[in-house]
Structure formats: C-alpha cells, structure tokens
Amino acid sequence: MPSKTSASRVPLYRQVQDVLLQRLDGGALRPGDRLPTETDLAAELRVNRLTVRQAIGELTRAGRLVARQGSGTFVAPPPQHFPIELVASYIGGPDGLGAAFTAVGRTLNETLVASEIVLGASAPQAEEHLPDTRLRRIDTVLTVDGEPWFANSVWMDDRRFAGIDRHLQDGAPLYTVWRDVYGVRLKAAWRSFAAAVASPRIAELLEIPSGAPVLLRDGLNVDEDGTPTVYINRSCRSDRVRFVANYRQTD
C-alpha cells in the first residue's frame, strides 16, 4: 500500500505505479485483462483518483497499458520478439562488460545489495526457466567509475550454489565466483531487451528519478552441459547505456 507520510521521498503516483508494475510483472494482471476503475483502485490503495490517473498515464506512455475509448484501460499485449542470432561464448565477467570497460580505461565494479530465498510463485519468469529448484535471488549493482549504471536481479539454484553470499561480501563479481568457487562456466542462451520506466526501487539503486527511462535486459545462462543455470534481469540506465549487436560475416 502506498505511503502517505511526508517523509517519503517517492511521490504517491510513483508508489501507485510501482504497485501496478508489481502486479503486471508478477502475473496478477495479464495481457488483455481490464484494469480496475480509477475509483476502485483509489479506494483500494487509499489515494486520490487523480493520483491513480497519473500512475496509469505513466504506464500507458510506457506501453504497459492501453486505453480504449468507452471500454477502460487494459493490460497491453506483450511486445513482439525479433530474434538476433549471435555466437555464444563463455562469459568471463558481468556478461563481458568488464573487458569492454577496461579497453577504454574505465573501471567496472559489482556490489552486493541483497540476497534471499525466493518464495514460490513470486518469480514466475525465473521459475519457468529454472523449474524444480529452490531459487535464490541475488541483487547487485554494477558501477562504472563509481557511478551506478546497472541494477541486477539474478536467480539461481540455492543448493547448487550453497553459501554464495559469503563469497560476494568483498565485492567479487558473480561470474568470477561462479567460475572460481563453484567451477561453473556460463554461456548466454538468450537475451531480450525492452524499454521501461524505473520503479522506485530501481531508481534508488541507480540514483536516477523514479519513472526515468531504463532499458530492461532479461536473459538465461546455461552451463557447459547446456543446463539452464542462471536467470538474469538487468535494468540499465538509458542515459548511459547503448547495446550494439555486431554480426559476424560468414560465407
């Protein structure tokens, strides 16, 4: 429920937006579902209708909701996927970013933010790709020359990577810990990219305004046997990050 306390640094409409985003991302609201009316949402969340309207407007502009004249507001259909075929290789750092930044004289560091066991049905995308496991979610922030650029949520099998928390306390990158401590080398199975707005939590981690544009990058990594091993969700500052796909030419 949104907080109305004057001490809150997050505007009420952003808090309402975050509640709706959690329902969208968690599957409580699915594509094609009709959103409750502004009046019903305002009563449920104990805010003004104008606050709800502003939050819905932000999500509509972000493409997550669609307004239909005379019918209401509905959850937008999922975006169309356009495959790009690339050659997979073993990942030596945070998705190969370390070497890229080192090459241009910049420093990339990873900091542990949180680690917890995931409750069932609370991470449907991760559970879909990593079934029949006890999932641990680890949140980290990647900084470039001390400035936060990437906020990561990573899901993995807690039994396979038992005790991983203590290896991350000193700032060791996740990929280094997976490789050197657990002997697991990872390859990217797939990556997806989408535009979004920063939730209050992501905005705080990246030190940007809540609702600022971010680039979402989801992905699945597999081990040397091809077993799905790590599911990753990364929020990238759109004012700092661009991704370029280079195509290898073949005959």
Results as ranks from 00 to 15, higher is better:
residue 6 S to F: 13
residue 7 A to Q: 12
residue 8 S to T: 14
residue 9 R to H: 12
residue 10 V to K: 04
residue 12 L to H: 07
residue 13 Y to S: 12
residue 14 R to Q: 15
residue 18 D to Y: 03
residue 20 L to R: 01
residue 23 R to L: 13
residue 23 R to Q: 14
residue 28 A to V: 09
residue 31 P to W: 03
residue 31 P to Q: 04
residue 31 P to L: 02
residue 31 P to Y: 01
residue 32 G to Y: 10
residue 36 P to N: 07
residue 36 P to T: 05
residue 38 E to A: 09
residue 39 T to H: 13
residue 44 E to V: 03
residue 44 E to N: 02
residue 48 N to E: 15
residue 54 Q to K: 15
residue 54 Q to Y: 10
residue 56 I to M: 10
residue 59 L to C: 05
residue 66 V to D: 03
residue 68 R to C: 04
residue 71 S to Y: 11
residue 71 S to F: 11
residue 72 G to D: 07
residue 73 T to S: 01
residue 73 T to D: 04
residue 77 P to Q: 10
residue 77 P to L: 05
residue 79 P to Y: 02
residue 79 P to W: 03
residue 80 Q to D: 09
residue 83 P to Q: 00
residue 84 I to L: 11
residue 85 E to V: 06
residue 86 L to H: 06
residue 89 S to V: 07
residue 90 Y to D: 08
residue 94 P to A: 12
residue 95 D to Q: 09
residue 97 L to P: 02
residue 97 L to A: 13
residue 98 G to V: 08
residue 100 A to D: 10
residue 100 A to N: 04
residue 100 A to R: 13
residue 103 A to T: 07
residue 103 A to Y: 08
residue 104 V to E: 13
residue 106 R to P: 06
residue 106 R to Y: 08
residue 114 A to N: 15
residue 115 S to V: 09
residue 116 E to Y: 14
residue 116 E to I: 00
residue 118 V to N: 07
residue 118 V to D: 07
residue 120 G to F: 10
residue 122 S to F: 09
residue 123 A to M: 07
residue 123 A to N: 05
residue 129 H to Y: 13
residue 132 D to F: 12
residue 133 T to F: 06
residue 135 L to S: 02
residue 136 R to C: 07
residue 140 T to Q: 05
residue 142 L to Q: 13
residue 152 N to L: 13
residue 154 V to K: 02
residue 154 V to I: 15
residue 156 M to C: 08
residue 157 D to W: 08
residue 158 D to T: 08
residue 158 D to E: 15
residue 159 R to W: 12
residue 161 F to Q: 01
residue 161 F to R: 03
residue 165 D to I: 08
residue 171 G to R: 10
residue 174 L to F: 01
residue 174 L to A: 00
residue 174 L to G: 01
residue 176 T to E: 14
residue 176 T to H: 12
residue 179 R to S: 11
residue 183 G to T: 04
residue 183 G to I: 03
residue 186 L to V: 03
residue 186 L to Y: 06
residue 187 K to E: 14
residue 187 K to H: 10
residue 187 K to G: 10
residue 189 A to K: 14
residue 191 R to G: 06
residue 197 V to H: 01
residue 200 P to G: 06
residue 200 P to D: 10
residue 203 A to E: 04
residue 206 L to P: 12
residue 206 L to Q: 11
residue 206 L to H: 11
residue 206 L to D: 06
residue 208 I to P: 06
residue 210 S to G: 09
residue 211 G to N: 00
residue 215 L to H: 02
residue 220 L to H: 07
residue 221 N to K: 11
residue 224 E to P: 01
residue 226 G to R: 07
residue 228 P to I: 05
residue 231 Y to A: 05
residue 233 N to E: 15
residue 233 N to L: 13
residue 236 C to K: 00
residue 236 C to N: 13
residue 237 R to K: 10
residue 237 R to S: 11
residue 238 S to G: 00
residue 239 D to P: 03
residue 240 R to C: 06
residue 243 F to V: 10
residue 247 Y to N: 02
